[in-house]
Simulated assay, not measured.
Amino acid sequence: MFSLHYFSRKRLILITTMLFMAFMISACGTGETGNGSNGEGVQTTTANSSQAGEANSVEEAGVKTVSTINGDIEIPVNPQRIVAEEYLGSLIALDVIPVGAPGLTIQNYYFKDFLQGIEDIGDYGKPSIEKIVALNPDLIITGNGEKTYEQLSKIAPTIVIPYGDLKNAQEELTYFGELFGKEEEAKTWLEAYDRRIAEAKAKVDAVVPADATFSIMEDGEKSTWVYGDNFGRGGQPVYQALGRKPPSGIAAEIMEKQWAELSAEMVSQYAGDYIIMTANTRTIEDFKADPIWSTLSAVKKGQMYIWPEERSWYYDPLAVLAQTEELAEWLSKKN
């Protein structure tokens, strides 16, 4: 339930009066109890009511039961002070701005402007319990609850959604639209998202052969990493949004494991016709001058796209949309 400090004295008096009226009506045998549903896995609890004004007040103060990996928990119907360690992109898309988030998330290239004034709760995966307590949250959302759930759940109702459970923008927005009673907003946002993704894909399909292969890589100086479709670095926009494929010989491995560390000798085996490379210090000219990388078709033809980790690491719906359009623009101009 919400704490009483969320309500002004005037509203508290009004609610008390309304509840008294409802009690009197119920005593006369005319009251009803209704249990509404906010979608699969989310049930809304309402109180006895026969007047619209009273129903709105009850909804503001109400709770609903949500099924989570930690069992059924009660959360506020309209949480006002959310601490979100994860899923900020989906929350912002629904105009749900938290009061606290990890510093790394607040600095997200794609939505940091939306989070001006949000409190930093510490490191991602290892938040400061003291800072969260000080924010007096009424709901906590995290994807890293294995080590912190017991502590966090003592502060406020805590929903743990492990990374990978929500596999794409559609699943994320649908879930949070249901959670916050913003199903229509989620539907509208996803319609615009799908339209823009389709436009980007059509732009790429018009100039890049359907059988062209793509590799998602990251430069580690002494080694190279390669990624699948759900590990950031461009995997979501390339493999999910644009529908492209990795080289056939390594596709099954990469899509199942999602990452692999490569030695210099292994790079050619994992390199596709196009390479989307995360690199903070090396340029395309550096790769062209490298005795191993310069032998790859993608490097020879200039079919390597280099971007920094501050743009490639993120995989929330806002980031994926922006990344997809960025890569589509490069591919269409390149070809």
Rank of each mutant, 00 (worst) to 15 (best):
G243T: 04
E218M: 12
P246R: 04
S215M: 01
Y239R: 05
S248N: 11
G234Q: 09
F231E: 08
S223N: 13
S215Y: 00
Q236S: 12
S223H: 08
S215A: 12
F231V: 05
G234D: 02
E221R: 11
Y227D: 03
R233Y: 09
V238W: 04
I216E: 10
R244E: 02
L242Q: 14
R244G: 06
G220I: 01
Q236T: 10
Q236W: 07
S215K: 04
A241D: 15
D229S: 15
V238Y: 06
Y227V: 05
R233T: 03
Q240R: 13
S215L: 04
R233C: 07
T224P: 00
G220L: 09
P237H: 13
D219V: 06
V238I: 15
W225F: 15
Q240I: 10
G243H: 09
P237G: 12
L242P: 02
R244H: 09
D219S: 13
L242D: 07
W225E: 09
G235Q: 05
Q236Y: 14
Q236I: 09
F231A: 15
P246N: 05
L242M: 11
K245N: 13
G235M: 02
E218N: 06
G220N: 12
Y239S: 10
Q240F: 05
K245Y: 08
R233W: 07
G235C: 08
G235V: 01
Q236F: 13
G249T: 05
S215G: 03
P237F: 10
S215Q: 07
W225T: 10
Y239I: 08
G235P: 04
D229T: 08
G249S: 11
L242W: 08
K222E: 10
G243A: 04
M217I: 11
